[in-house]
Design a protein around this nucleic acid. Sequence first.
RNA 1: CUUUGGAGCCAAGCGUUCGCUCCGUUGUUCUUUUUUAUCGGGGCGAAAGCCUCACGGAAUUUCGGAGAGGAAAGUCCGGACGUCAUAGGGCAGGAUUCCUCGCGAAAGCGAGGGCGUCUCGUUUCAAUGCGAGGCGACGGAUAGCGCCGCAGAAAAUAGGUAGCCUUUUUUGUUCCGCAAUUGCAGGACUUUGAAGGUCAUAGUGAAAAGGUGGGGUAAGAGCCCACCGCCGUUUCGAGUAAUCGAUCGGGCAUGGCAAGCCCAAUCCGACGCAAGACAAAAUAGGGGGCCGGGUUGCCCGCCCAUAAAGCUCCGGGUAUGUCGCGUCUCUUGAAAAAGGGGCCUGCGCUAAUGCACUCGAGAUAAAUGAACGCGUCUUCUAAAAGCUUCGGUUUUCAGAAGAACAGAAUCCGGCUUAUCGGCUCCAAAGCUAG
RNA 2: AGCCUCGUGGUGUAAUGGUAGCACUAUGGAUUCUGGUUCCAUCUGUCGGGGUUCGAGUCCCUGCGAGGCUG
Length: 135
Amino acid sequence: MASRFRLRPAQRLRRNADFVTIRRSGKPYRCSFFALYSKIRKSEDLELTMARIGISASKRVGNAVERNLVKRRFREIFRLSQHRIEPKADIVISIRAPAVEASYEELEQRFKHALKYNGLLRQSQTPSARRRREG
RNA sequence: CUUUGGAGCCAAGCGUUCGCUCCGUUGUUCUUUUUUAUCGGGGCGAAAGCCUCACGGAAUUUCGGAGAGGAAAGUCCGGACGUCAUAGGGCAGGAUUCCUCGCGAAAGCGAGGGCGUCUCGUUUCAAUGCGAGGCGACGGAUAGCGCCGCAGAAAAUAGGUAGCCUUUUUUGUUCCGCAAUUGCAGGACUUUGAAGGUCAUAGUGAAAAGGUGGGGUAAGAGCCCACCGCCGUUUCGAGUAAUCGAUCGGGCAUGGCAAGCCCAAUCCGACGCAAGACAAAAUAGGGGGCCGGGUUGCCCGCCCAUAAAGCUCCGGGUAUGUCGCGUCUCUUGAAAAAGGGGCCUGCGCUAAUGCACUCGAGAUAAAUGAACGCGUCUUCUAAAAGCUUCGGUUUUCAGAAGAACAGAAUCCGGCUUAUCGGCUCCAAAGCUAG
RNA sequence: AGCCUCGUGGUGUAAUGGUAGCACUAUGGAUUCUGGUUCCAUCUGUCGGGGUUCGAGUCCCUGCGAGGCUG
């Protein structure tokens, strides 16, 4: 299991209530590309062992093709960096219009900075272990 | 060969690594019950319950298969399908509109023809005729209502402002005749007013009440005539028809606008998959209103209900899952559902019925992606070489940028809009060579 | 996804098919020692395209934009 990075349906936020609560009471991080809200789940929820993400793109971002492209890029970024994220974290990303023009590398850099800013990085993980997994 | 136009087709390729959705398949683990409904088999047990196994479900895993469009878009039309306790009638509302034929379930599309209009060429003094091309939401303006600003005399059953003409009145000039300084009578011109005739003429306007020519008249006028135009339930002929031609009649009545209201003909029940169905959860039945409620916006009619319920508003609560989600049929099954086959498309074989391959998305905070590499095309920049009529042009190499419009959401048929390019065919024009 | 409504100066809002107005704002000037108030003048517009009509803000078609409703 540890040799691959999957993105299961259990790792995605699918309820409107989750979006509302995280957006209302989560910790915000804002930049020109997106706004990130994060919240650490309580320890009672033992079934969920992984971080969850939900991506929201309104119609102001662009047409359907552009919205889907940005959402796919953020899913890919989350998938490839999920081992570094606190497992009890719930993340909601609201995409803003300039993200359509941004490249994949820019989005990845901003996302990692947002993780560090909100304190969502996993403490026990080391960079050497990450390199071993990718190899 | 180039350019333009039309029609049709495609929607940039390959490889590696990782990833997503669905289906089938191989294992593993958990679950098989709390609520609702009578609900699998076996064992223990008085019962509650416990253990175990199958079907099923969930998570994960092996292998294999499939996975956005010509417009998926806009939601402009038409259907399928579902619901409304039937869908009947009338009114209202909406859609369509030259004729014929073809395709289609319908919308719509295509071909041909007719008519109108515009442009060009040609003919004619001109009107007009002929030819080519473009455009046309192209039924009806003698069914009715309404509107036609400004300008202009007048804008719609014609009327009469100026002007013209006749009669009469007044003023003046002049001519002629008679008597002879002056007067009388008459004619012509002019001026003022009145009555009448008339609309050819009018610095307008989008449009001026048939046009041109001639006769006629006091002046004029379809008042009359010729030609052209117009109208007609005249007749004849051609054509399936729209319509056209000839003839006869009518002196002309009938301005334009129906993408103003409207009239005629034909058609349309309403709402839309967030339609709706099932299951579960929550509320534990609060307060106000209607006595009826539903069926189409309204009326009739119909259906349900008759004092309990129903409907509606406010407040509170829940806002989750499955189906609907190609379609038909067969089998299994009580049902739900599952499985198989056909329908569709392309190609091959057979004389044919047929046979074989393929049968292509069902996501639901919404799946097709990310990274790297190779090659192709276009543009730009820089360099080298060849040809040159010194304007340029061709080839090679390097670098950079770009490779469209755009993402299924119940499905299908059209319409419209967006779109980098590539290929094939047809037509026209130009250039070069034979 | 389905359905509905609306686009007029910078803003708000009028206009039976017949010269596109009103108020606020902005700019300039006058008044004042200065500012405000007041007065005068100016600027700025029918969402784009096509059609019907003599003539479209209005009527019709089509696109664009904005807003809303339906669980």
